[in-house]
Amino acid sequence: MSAEMYKEYILQHYRRPRNHGTLEDADIIHEDDNPLCGDRVRVAVKIEDDRIADIRFQGKGCAISQASASIMTDKVKGKTLDEVKAIDTEEVLGWLRIPVSPMRVKCAMLGVKVLQAGIHQLEREQAESN
C-alpha cells in the first residue's frame, strides 16, 4: 500500500516540481505549515477575472506534501476562485491516483489548504476595503 504511494510520477513531481518559485506581481502570497510535522508550502498566485491566471509554489517537506502541491499548481490554473475553494480531499486524492494512508492525508492536503487560506484572506481584505 505505502510503497504504491511512491509511484514514479509522484517522485518526479517531488524531485522536479512543476511551477516552482514565486511571482513578481502576485495577488496572493500565502505560506503555512502543518504544525504536526513542520511541512511547509508557500504559494504565489496571479488572479484575472476571478480565475487563477498563474501560480507558483515553494516548500519543504515530505514527498507526498510537495508532489501534491506540484500537481495542484497544474490542476488549479484557469479555475475560478469559488471552484478552488470547493476542492475537497476526494478531489485531491483523485489527482494523486495513489492510495494515501489515513495518517498521510494531511500531507497530501497541505498545498490546497494553503492556497484556499490565501484566497480566503484575499477576500477578507477585499471585503474590509469595500
Binding site: 505505502s2 511541512d39 515530505c62 498521510r104
Partner: peptide, 12 residues
C-alpha cells in the same frame, strides 16, 4: 528521504 516518507516506507 524525508522522515515521514521514511516512516511510511519502513512500515511497509
Amino acid at each position: 528521504v524525508h522522515p515521514h516518507d521514511l516512516a511510511s516506507l519502513v512500515d511497509q
